[in-house]
Nucleic acid binder design. Structure first.
Length: 807
DNA sequence: ATCATAACGCTTTTT
DNA sequence: GCGTTATGAT
């Protein structure tokens, strides 16, 4: 056999074996999995098995290295090995023995040479657990993390290079950043109305995205006459100064500083770019310029960069994401390959076609048409409601109907454009006894009491953290009033020292003589907490090892006792503060969870995790309940039944996007995202009239609905949904004629149901009516259902799903 | 220092 | 329409 012929046969057999390992994937997916080398752009439509491809691609890299994507064979390959391969090539679908795999492999990558970057912790967690499921233990060494946590990891190691920050830097979240800005605006004596913290932060964020320092920013605007921008420049400068003094980094800084460090320090760059032989980035359409730069630097050495995304699902332009990154990837990486995943495994034909129809109206896109082998499925139901409460009731009714047919509550998701829309829906769900969960809205970690507790922990960790220090210096009240705080922070900023230093030396300043005792009391408290935190518990201290830090939960309990925070809440208003106290204990369970998951977990580590992981309470999937959330939060999720509510001009698309072609395209992408969340059934609802922000308006139906061909839709009008007597409501009338007939029927009288009645509810089954309480024009029914427990329903809503049964 | 009332303002959101 | 915040009065 010539060497050439040998090589050919070897390659052929090897390829068949590797392909066999991924034969459960479709052709395009397989191609993507096997294209391990060089730049790869993976355009993955909604529901096309994107994460599966990422997982398998990594598995391929670890198992076979670059064998699936090159024409090289090991120089030491023998004919005996070829025989083994060929013997297995034909039955490649079975489990392949390890020795055969290693004949195939060419430069297997160690797990720590792979970095997979995602946007959300949830996505990162999913990636990690799926990797672990197919790769076992070695998956733990893969860097599967968010942009931000990857940067924190890098910075904790190397940030001291820059000589500005120390390793134990603090992370500021958006709220922290905003309150710092607020302080600065005050201190610079600027008009607070002209500089809302949110807006200013957006400017800073954009500047950082362009890698502009405060000085760059000031330079740039100095040529203009825009005084406001010049002042924003001043704010930026002051912000940077104070952040440095506080040894703090905000979310943008985490990435910015990492990029700076990698650009400026060749040895650091060399270390990471050499380390990461394979770089993968998920949701690439949502990256901003800074993130693009980070990825570019990390992948700079090996150029094995795979970005996965869908230009049609870019919905975060408003926060700086640049869809350009995906649209121009091919220009940036000239020799890159492009693979499209267009087969959808999630939705029915009707739903998918509707989504395709809508998104095809956009101009700025790569062009891609999803298709599916799934059945056509049910038509999309469009419901034109009278007003928002009719809309909500309709949704509730459909859910009850679905539940009575055997679906779970968790199979339903209601998607809206803005959080403010959830109110009416919540009412309707409550009235009808539908268990639900609202995702988003006010977050656990944004609550005042939680912020307070974390502020204490932050100060223990880093006494230079002025912002957090100011938050707790008089909380609980310890007689340090606003005036004292002002004087202290002024002295501090004049001397360029942390506030804590001034507080410590209160006696040295005549201005503070009056408050000195109380200030020193505070110092005492902090020092006490600090020494508690970093001293080993009794008996465990070994003389030859360095002192072990105190377990976090003990520190936390000590903190609660020593500060008297809970006592204060209880004394003040035990009623109102009950939930606050609950939250404080809830934080303790977070601490315990953290300790269980991180054996050598430190206070600093815990604070990192908290700073970057803000949605801990989110998904408790153990409880079966319907889900409500914004369309944005729904990205990446899927549900059997989806309701898109408020499909009206002015709401969706929102007022601010109408007349702005680019914004409108973003709204349309959002619509595409929303539609493609649905697996089996999609409802779209729109109200003729709606009250929002205290104003009633009549809106035209959303243009996005008009963009869906009628053939995919079933249009439904409001019928009278309340029936007169016993018995269930008939199917909703669909024609104008029957609708009018139905309008003759009357509201069910409150007296229809009595205490002690046996009732049958369409969704909840049989039960006993325990009490009837008149409430306005309605009645609250308390019913002990045989199988689902006791529920409280409002008669006007529930009656249509209920009848009395004779005993 | 704390409470009351007036005033504002309000996409979307992750880190 | 509602929830948060700013300001002033006690």
């Amino acid at each position: 056999m010539t060497r050439n012929e040998f090589k050919k046969r070897f390659l052929k057999a090897r390829r068949r074996i590797i392909a066999g390992e991924f034969s459960h994937l479709n052709d395009m997916q397989q191609e993507a999995v096997m294209a391990t080398e060089g730049p790869l752009l993976l355009l993955a439509g909604a529901g096309s098995g994107k994460t599966t491809v990422i997982i398998n691609r990594i598995a391929n890299i670890l198992k076979y290295g670059r064998a699936s994507d090159c024409d090289e064979i090991p120089p030491y390959a023998t004919e005996a090995e070829l025989e083994v391969l060929e013997a297995y090539a034909d039955r490649a679908t079975e489990e392949i023995p390890e020795d055969v795999k290693s004949i195939c492999a060419l430069e297997r990558a160690e797990p720590w040479r792979v970095i997979a970057i995602t946007f959300t912790n949830k996505a990162a967690d999913e990636l990690k657990s799926r990797l672990e499921a197919i790769l076992g233990e070695q998956a733990l060494d893969i860097w599967a993390s968010t942009f931000h946590s990857a940067c924190v990891r890098i910075l904790r190691r190397d940030i001291e290079r820059l000589g500005i920050y120390s390793r134990n830097f603090t992370i500021y979240d958006t709220v922290d950043s905003q309150s710092l800005i607020k302080r600065i605006v005050k201190d610079l004596e600027l008009d607070e109305k002209m500089f809302p913290p949110r807006t200013v932060l957006t400017y800073l964020s954009n500047a950082k995205d362009q890698m502009q320092t405060a000085e760059d920013f000031i330079d740039q605007v100095s040529k203009t006459r825009d005084i406001r921008k010049k002042q924003i420049g001043e704010i930026y400068r002051e912000y940077t100064k104070r952040m440095r003094e506080a040894n703090a980094l905000d979310f943008d800084d985490l990435i910015l500083i990492t990029v700076k460090m990698l650009s400026e320090y060749e040895d650091v760059r060399e270390y990471y770019s050499n380390k990461f032989k394979y770089v993968l980035v998920d949701e690439y359409q949502d990256t901003n310029k800074l993130q693009y730069n980070l990825v570019r630097l990390l992948a700079g050495k090996w150029n094995n960069i795979c970005v996965v995304g869908d230009d049609d699902q870019g919905i975060y332009r408003f926060r700086g994401a640049s869809i350009e990154n995906i649209l121009s990837f091919e220009d940036q990486y000239k020799n890159c390959r492009v693979i499209r995943l267009e087969q959808n495994y999630r939705s029915t034909g009707n739903i998918l076609d509707a989504a395709n129809a809508v998104i095809s109206m956009n101009v700025a896109r790569k062009g891609k048409e999803l298709w599916t082998k799934n059945e056509r499925g049910e038509l999309i139901t469009l419901y034109r409601a009278e007003n928002e409460s009719d809309e909500a009731q309709y949704v509730a009714t459909q859910i009850l109907e679905g539940f009575s047919q055997g679906l779970n509550w968790g199979d339903f998701a209601v998607l809206y454009r803005m959080n403010a829309q959830s109110n009416q829906l919540e009412y309707a769900f409550k009235r009808n006894g539908i268990p639900y969960r609202v995702i988003g809205g006010t977050k656990f970690f944004d609550r005042a009491e939680i912020k307070d507790m974390l502020a204490y922990l932050c100060v223990i960790n880093n006494t230079n953290d002025d912002l957090r220090l100011l938050r707790i210096i008089n909380n609980p009240p310890r007689g340090i009033g606003a005036k004292t705080v002002d004087t202290v922070s002024q002295i501090a900023s004049e001397g360029g020292v942390p506030i804590y230093e001034v507080v410590k030396r209160a006696r040295e300043y005549t201005e503070l003589s009056g408050a000195a005792n109380r200030l020193l009391g505070f110092v005492n408290l902090i020092e006490d907490l600090r020494s508690f935190a970093y001293t080993a518990p009794e008996g465990e201290a070994a003389q030859d090892t360095q002192p072990k830090p105190r377990p976090l939960d003990e520190l936390y309990e000590y903190l609660l006792r020593r500060t008297g925070y809970i006592d204060m809440l209880e004394k003040k208003n035990p009623q109102e503060n009950a939930s606050r106290i609950e939250n404080i204990w809830e934080l303790k369970s977070n601490i315990i969870t953290y300790m269980q998951e991180n054996e050598d977990g430190s206070l600093a580590g815990f604070l990192d995790e908290i700073a970057l992981y803000t949605d801990i309470e989110q998904l408790d999937e153990s409880v079966d309940s319907a889900i409500m959330m914004t369309m944005h939060s729904a990205k990446g999720l899927e549900f059997p039944v989806v309701f898109i509510v408020g499909a009206e001009e002015g709401i969706f698309p929102g007022v601010r996007s109408i007349g702005e072609p680019e914004e409108l395209e973003e709204e349309r992408r959002l619509c595409y995202v929303a539609i493609t969340r649905a697996k089996k059934k999609l409802y779209i609802t729109a109200a003729r009239q709606r009250m929002l922000f205290g104003r009633t308006s009549a809106n035209r139906i959303s243009r996005f609905v008009e963009e869906i061909p009628d053939a995919y839709m079933d249009k439904v009008q409001p019928g009278i949904t309340i029936i007169r007597n016993t018995g269930f409501s008939a199917p909703r009338p669909k024609t104008e004629k029957s609708r009018i007939e139905w309008q003759e029927k009357k509201t069910v009288p409150v007296t229809e149901f009595r205490k002690g009645d046996r009732v049958h509810h369409k969704a909840f089954g049989e039960g006993l009516l325990i009490s009837v309480t008149a409430m306005g024009g309605d009645a609250l029914l308390e019913i002990a259902f045989d199988s689902v427990g006791t529920k409280r329903l409002l008669c006007n809503s529930a009656a249509r799903h209920m009848k009395k049964i004779d005993v």
